[in-house]
Amino acid sequence: MNTNTIQFATLVRREILRFVRRPYNTFLPPIITNTLYFAVFGVILGNRIGEIAGVSYLQFVLPGLVVLGAISDSFENASFTIFHGRWNDYIQAVLTSPMSNRSMVTAYVSASALRGIVTSLLIVGVGLVFTSVPVANPLYLVAFLLIITTLFGGLGVIGGLWASDFDYLTVMNQFILRPLVFFGAVFYSLDVLPPLWRNVSLLNPMVYMVNGVRYGMIGVTEIDPNTSLVVLTGVTVVVLAIDLLLFKRGYGLAE
């Protein structure tokens, strides 16, 4: 392995070990939360709702819950590790090393994306307890999950650099991300909305992510998945470029 690869692999490994060794903080909460979602929305309410888009309500909400878990955890992982490292100054061990800014950003984002994907798989695992889980378009499913978790890993880096207190992390996750996902057609179809609210919903980027993953799983979407993929990829590239620029300028990292 060359120097760059060793540096990158070391930071990725460190990041992965951090979340793998603390499963009660990282993996258990989404398992419990999603078990509750499936039990309440899927089993208790879902039986009264019936089918949506030709599948059971449980199968309809599963992609949305996967997206919710994936983006929450990839965002939370990146924002927490950057902010906590700044708060306790130990990120300086990385910053004062000869790692390139690009390696640092790529390592933080990759590890966060991986955590989002692991969370997605856990949620699918919970879903399997309650229902069968179709995978209609596996390539689209993988592509959407990769791009979504990378995008939110990248956004988490920005959040971690911007935050000046733990409250900021809560604000970003609970007051911005979560409402956007909940109004992103996780629990309902856009078709049930009045035309005005349907159009307003289309301004919510989460709608495209939820529909993309839904297309990958149950083969049903209300928005063209290719357009969604192109737009999301473009946004991700922009976000990663901003990450790199912030690292280069030392935003939140150097005085």
Binding site: N2, T3, N4, I6, Q7, A9, T10, L11, R13, R14, A93, V94, S97, P98, M99
Partner: peptide, 8 residues
Amino acid sequence: HKAGYHGI
């Protein structure tokens, strides 16, 4: 980890 960040 610190050694790894230095490419060791």
